[in-house]
Amino acid sequence: MNIKRIIALLLICAAFFGLKASAATVDTALTHSVAMNRDLKAVVIKPADYTTTKKYPVMYLLHGFSGNYTDWIKKIPAITKLADTYHFIIVCPDGAFAGWYFDSPVNKDFMYETYISKELVSYVDSHYATIATRKGRAITGLSMGGHGALFLAFKHQDVFGAAGSMSGVVDIRQFADSYGIEQLLGKYSEHPEVWEQHCVVSLIYLVKPNALALTFDCGYDDGMYSGNQELHEKLLERKIPHDYTVRPGGHSWEYWGNAITYQVLFFSRYFNGDK
């Protein structure tokens, strides 16, 4: 083998290993919830340029009903490339099969509002090189996770500076007899005021204009479309700036795999001071 061919092979090998080394790192973090007295797992994606000498913004990405913390990385593995492209950490928490991301007033085994907004955020900030302020945190999710992201952001504006939703269940009253919600809040017919307190469209009064950077979207053929349209109109009435997008599509991973690319762009602009 001549010297030119050896050099060429060495360059190819160097390029290959360089590409491998530049890939995002996917961790599975074991966290503990004092509120629920148990351990929970979360996927943490670190961008390729991650180093402890630099501080990174964090996007919390929530799964939907019947899912778990592995959903996003399994269904849309390309989110690792988004972490690389936009240079922020992505955290995918566990919200249980039907945890709905709030603290249940009737079942103390479901305290996911406290877990996400306090316990998990504290864990991530103490174990990773993060921008540990609301200006360095965004939260979004799909379906049940879309509800959770907006609910948590509306109620914890000191923790999250930006929030989004994809096909979010923004009006849980539509599903008073479905998806395990009454197991967490009691029957809607008996406790309508409790449901109001946990319904995104009923919590808009908590948000002042420009207090949060907001983006949400929904497919036109999605059963969540009417609720998202109502949320959009109510935000307009209160003159609360937000990005709202309706696209062709339904309640599917094909839709969410496309939608997340626009959401991370929005959050990147926020992190960079453009929102």
Rank of each mutant, 00 (worst) to 15 (best):
V44W: 11
H127E: 07
Y225G: 05
T31M: 00
D177F: 07
T85P: 01
Y112M: 07
T51Y: 10
F160E: 07
A23E: 15
R269C: 13
T140K: 01
V169R: 08
A29F: 02
Y270A: 12
A8M: 11
Q229T: 08
N228A: 09
M144G: 07
K55M: 13
H127R: 13
D221A: 01
D125A: 09
Q174F: 14
V170P: 08
T25G: 08
N228R: 00
K135D: 12
L214Q: 06
T51G: 12
D103Y: 10
R269S: 14
N107P: 10
L61C: 09
V26H: 09
S167I: 01
G227Q: 13
E119S: 02
A211E: 15
S122G: 07
T114E: 13
K74I: 08
P47R: 14
A176D: 06
V121L: 07
D243P: 08
M166T: 04
R269D: 15
E196Y: 03
N210W: 10
V43Q: 10
H242G: 05
F65N: 00
I116V: 13
G161K: 14
K81S: 15
L120W: 03
D177S: 14
L61E: 05
A21I: 04
L40Y: 02
G18M: 02
F97K: 15
A211C: 08
K208G: 11
D243M: 11
G67I: 01
N228D: 05
T215D: 15
P241A: 13
P93K: 02
L152I: 11
M111P: 03
L236F: 02
K234M: 08
V26K: 08
Y86E: 00
L206V: 11
I131G: 05
G99T: 13
Y60T: 03
A14T: 02
Q229I: 09
V159H: 13
P57L: 12
H156G: 03
R269A: 15
M111A: 00
T52L: 13
T53G: 00
L142K: 02
V58K: 13
D109H: 14
Q157F: 05
A78I: 03
P77N: 12
E190A: 14
M166R: 11
S226H: 04
S252T: 04
A211D: 14
Y262T: 03
L142D: 04
A15T: 15
Q157P: 11
M1Y: 05
H242V: 02
L82K: 04
F110V: 15
G161M: 10
C92R: 02
I131Q: 05
K54N: 14
D274F: 12
L214I: 15
V43M: 06
T80N: 01
A211F: 01
I73N: 06
G146Q: 04
T133G: 11
G145D: 00
W253P: 03
I6M: 10
A15C: 15
W253A: 00
S66F: 04
N272G: 13
Q157H: 07
F102P: 08
Q183W: 07
I76E: 00
G223K: 02
Y56S: 14
A129I: 06
T245K: 04
I90S: 01
A132T: 09
T70P: 01
G250L: 01
A35F: 10
K239R: 08
I139R: 10
L61S: 09
A35E: 02
W256S: 00
K208I: 10
P192W: 11
T130C: 04
C92K: 04
N258F: 07
I73V: 07
M224R: 00
